[in-house]
Design a protein around this nucleic acid. Sequence first.
DNA 1: CGGGTCGTTGACCGTGATCAAGTAACGTGG
DNA 2: CCACGTTACTTGATCACGGTCAACGACCCG
Lengths: 241, 241
Amino acid sequence: MSCLIAKLSHYVDLSDDDCRLLAALEADEQEYSADQLVHSANEEIEFLYVVKKGWLYNYIDLPDGRRQIVRIHHPGDVLGLGDIAYLKAGTSLRACEDVVLCPFPKTHLDAIFVNAPRLTALLFTIAVRDQAILVDMLKSVSRMSARERMAFLLLDLISRLRVTNSDMTTQFRCPLSLTELGDTLALTGVYVKKTIEALEQDHLLRYEEGIIELLDEPALEKICDFSERYSTIDTSWFPGG
Amino acid sequence: MSCLIAKLSHYVDLSDDDCRLLAALEADEQEYSADQLVHSANEEIEFLYVVKKGWLYNYIDLPDGRRQIVRIHHPGDVLGLGDIAYLKAGTSLRACEDVVLCPFPKTHLDAIFVNAPRLTALLFTIAVRDQAILVDMLKSVSRMSARERMAFLLLDLISRLRVTNSDMTTQFRCPLSLTELGDTLALTGVYVKKTIEALEQDHLLRYEEGIIELLDEPALEKICDFSERYSTIDTSWFPGG
DNA sequence: CGGGTCGTTGACCGTGATCAAGTAACGTGG
DNA sequence: CCACGTTACTTGATCACGGTCAACGACCCG
């Protein structure tokens, strides 16, 4: 089963027609290797993508060479919804390991908007949920200490992985380098290291060779006032189906 | 003419049916006074709002008493699209001066999703445009200096005001206090003051009694690598209408 | 006239950046 | 198989941006 359908049917019952429309989005496949740029900011957007395998991230470059990672993507995510308001992409998209994407032209959304109001509402909701997550990220970066931010990011990542991967335990592989984690958290790679070390001192987590193990989730949640945004959404107002 | 219709028809031609659906959203009116809370985070969401008059802002409180202002709203804005994925509001909404809002229940969106795919696409696009703006804000707060952030915020505000207010010059009244500006920029009120002073020293702007005048917009744009997000959006992929 | 909030200014401080040097792992070409 | 370059991780010394704290004045409202 496609991981897009798997992820979406977590939220609503999909009709056969809905599934057919969604399957059409995953007709093509394309591979990208680790660290490869999928598209860069200010490039014209031809395609949206469904992630089939691997992690990627969106980021913005600043003129002085620094960058901010805006969103980390996992299999089953729909990429590019956030860019369809504009002709050109606002962020660059890069694979952080070998990935497989399913590109589809943005005009394919037409068929969904016209024929499947229920699915439209779901896509709308997902797009808008991403916004809530950006708000969390803004709060994190603007108002929290390095320690709190680190806790927040790790909890966010694991709770997203749990949505599609219900056998997920307390440990996962994170293919981002320390510098990339820093670009996500608005810290330097150096300080990410020191922060992780401090959390390890307190027996809250373990980090080794890209494997992260959360040793005390309740304590981590308390540190950063975490609230989970992925397991449930409100579908009660959706058009009947 | 309603400022919602004014704002939206800036982007697409609206049919009579579309206008009728939109007008229904502005059927009711409600006043709030300066500094009044419209709804708070974690409250159940009953209504979305169209802003008829005055400025408001969304913010998040942190357990330790700090807060982050997430978005500043002007007349014509639709509030709450970002919250419809959840049963409860993620942010609090507060009036920063006397305002008039038009509340409508979120189920009213149904009618639009089912009957007006073109308008749906527009709302979708607006919701998603807000996301691009959040990304800008994230970039600003995470990676820019106080001076750059200040420049960015002021350019953002004036370019939004210009969308509906084409006779806007280089000066506008900003009803936010220095502390509120600080909560927006992730700075303290004290440092906002010092930053504004520094910009005044360089003859880039003037600030007096809440009136802001931008003296050298090109220079300000250069400081913060500003890109305008409000004047145009991509409507080419919209369903025909 | 008293109390509140906001703006203003100055002294001092702390988090996280910057810089620098060193190590380990990897792929490359000779 | 080794020399080389590259990249990531590691660690420590020092620095600076912006926060914190405190005090005062202006203004508003009761």
